[in-house]
Design a protein around this nucleic acid. Sequence first.
DNA 1: TCTGGGGTCCTAGGACCC
DNA 2: TCTGGGGTCCTAGGACCC
Length: 411
Amino acid sequence: MKIVFHVDMDAFFVSVEEIFDPSLKGKAVVVGGQRNERGVVSAASYEARKFGVHSALPLRTAAALCPHAIFLDGHPERYREYSHKVHRVLMEFSPLVEMASVDEAYLDLTGTERLFGPPLRAAHLLHERMKQATGLNCSVGIATSRMVAKVSSDQAKPNGILWVQPGLEAAFLAPLDVRRIPGVGKVTEERLHQLGIRKVGDLAALEEGFLRRKLGEWGLALAGKARGWDAGAWFDKPMGGEDEPKSISHEHTFGEDTADQTALESTLARLAEKVARRVREQSVHARTVHLKLRYEDFTTLTRSHTLSRATQLDHELIGESRELFRKAWRKGAKVRLIGMGVSGFEATEGQMGLLDAEAHERARKALLVVDRLRDKYGESTVKLAGGLGGDHAERVHENPVGLPGKRVKKT
DNA sequence: TCTGGGGTCCTAGGACCC
DNA sequence: TCTGGGGTCCTAGGACCC
């Protein structure tokens, strides 16, 4: 019988911040930005949650609900560091660990009885070891499948352990709201409510034909989940597989909406540089370029273009995204968010003429040097002049007011 | 009280090919 | 000339997750 653990860190970002500043303990803390900023809550302490603050809530709403809360900017480096610590602890219990995000993981503990005893005992050992090694609380769900283990850790929160024994999956799920099923969000929940389905048990009792008619193939998968069946490749996939990303993107929401073409295009160029750099770090080449625009009324559009040849060069991604932008943007319309990304990764850039290939190679090598310099001295110290193989000489951009992430280095 | 940023997966129509 | 059917790629949009 398969034994799957789902380990979920409690209020992860807040808990990490408390390690760096213990005076935060027991207080209402909101991580994600300042109280008057555009943005949403990344994590809220349990104290703040008492006032209705939760993740994804707009920061300004959180400030209205809980005026005495302490608002903190996030520290992604800290969370990555602690995520690695968590990973190391989990590896002590099984080599089959799959981090599902910075703060949660699946473990396959099948056949570890001899080492750690029965599942509950293993979970307690893990829980204690986690606290001792990282200073963080976690919750553990134990089941025979990932899906049920995940629902179970959710029910165990905070700081708890819950084992759904083999054969009791459907009984465990039945009384829960349909929203508890991973993959059922606001929209699907609403559709299910309209069909009179509120509990997972209601879902499990329905005829398959009915679900297929009302919700399509997705409805069938849902009914399976409701019965505790964890179907599909995801279930069978062995844990621990580190797969490469399928897309890389960056986006930016302006502090104030803007229709200033220079500001928009220079922001886009900065995003494209960050994306290009990460593409090079992955040692891949990207074929499809995506643009995303959000206007002041929140209408959002995306445009994409597939290149005849994959690339990892700044100026090509800057040029492509700018072209997409100029075609898509209603001139004069105020923009709230601009973003770009790439997908369709290939190992090499593909065929090109000899002369092109030489220029291309020069540009690639120059960029690798630039990447290293930027590592050492910071983003803004290195600016590319023209001549690196493109029309980007005019690309040297100022930092528009209100943009984060470009600190100017004093020399 | 206005709604982040990084992703994944799915759907659906049209193009194109066999 | 009442005109299939499937597979794959491309593009746009959307649900969902942390």
